[in-house]
Nucleic acid binder design. Sequence first.
DNA 1: TACGGAAGTGTGAACCGCCA
DNA 2: TGGCGGTTCACACTTCCGTA
Length: 337
Amino acid sequence: MPDTRTAVSEIVTGLGLYGFRDLAQALAARPRFITNVDDDVYDQLDEAFASGTHADVFRVAWANGQRFARSTDGLRGRPPWSVEWKGPHKPPAYEQIPADLRVDHVYLLSCKYGSKILQNASPANLFDRALSERRTSAVDWFDAVAPTSYGEFYTEVVAHTGLTGLPADPTELDRNHRERLRKALPGRWPAELREHWGLVAFEIARTSADRLLDNISAKGEREAFVWRLLRLQAAPYFVLGADLKNVPLHYRVTTPWDFRTRFALRSVDLWGEHAGQPLVRWRVDLHDRELDTDRVIEGHVEVRWSHGKFGGVPEAKIYLDTPHHDVAGYQPLDDGS
DNA sequence: TACGGAAGTGTGAACCGCCA
DNA sequence: TGGCGGTTCACACTTCCGTA
């Protein structure tokens, strides 16, 4: 059974593609032409709709589906003859196109609500492999890029918690050790450790940024990295959703070919920043040939433990800070009028 | 001082690869 | 073949901080 919010955002978008009078009528009809949606999922939607939970998601998803149905980039006012819902499945390797719905076997729709996250990657896959491939490794990234300062900080942490029986080296932590540390360090860092962690975090961020810059030193590598960062693929797809303030988002993600035709890459920059956790800022500078203007895309990467302090190896969460509709390569959908 | 937004942190699920 | 750790996805929740 999928998460209710996710099910609402994806299936209600699909329902909005058909010409139902309103959402209540569409839910009552339980249309079978949306494949992979069974009665249990429709029950889940009915319950949420009746209780008013996720009312904003219902409203925006319905409107987004209707917009795509009208848009000249979308269905141009004709009803679809096939809508396939992917459901709560996860593909192997990197998701090339994060599609949740496929319309008429052609249009791929990604439903993204209340998130600025472009993707999560392991730090090594981002900073060492520039997102070109997904490989698994048990490397503790903090130790890999700042072994001395991270080791010293770990020693201070152990002393602070008073825990005994932990190894002297953080790379030797086993599952039980990590669990004990995680439980001993809930929430924010204690005030006594915060400044030291800030310094270690800055070193991790700075070194990580430098490593990625070294790995994309050639112009072609930088350009391909930007495509992967923005999740441009060989075929276009559509994103329908809402931003963190629930403002509707609806745009076509163009292809590297479209991108290269319209934009000239000027530079890609990354740098570490002082923050409460390792933070790498990124910025892409472009020239828009069509409008003869300069364009900027900005974001940041948080390198952090995904499941509590010392709770495992770190992850790299890649955020987009530029509003989606202002991002070069993301083409807002018209409303068909 | 209250409030809202930003920053930081936590969680659960799904999948893969490795190893016993 | 099953268990476990690592990776990724998609948020939700908590805390901090600036501003009115």
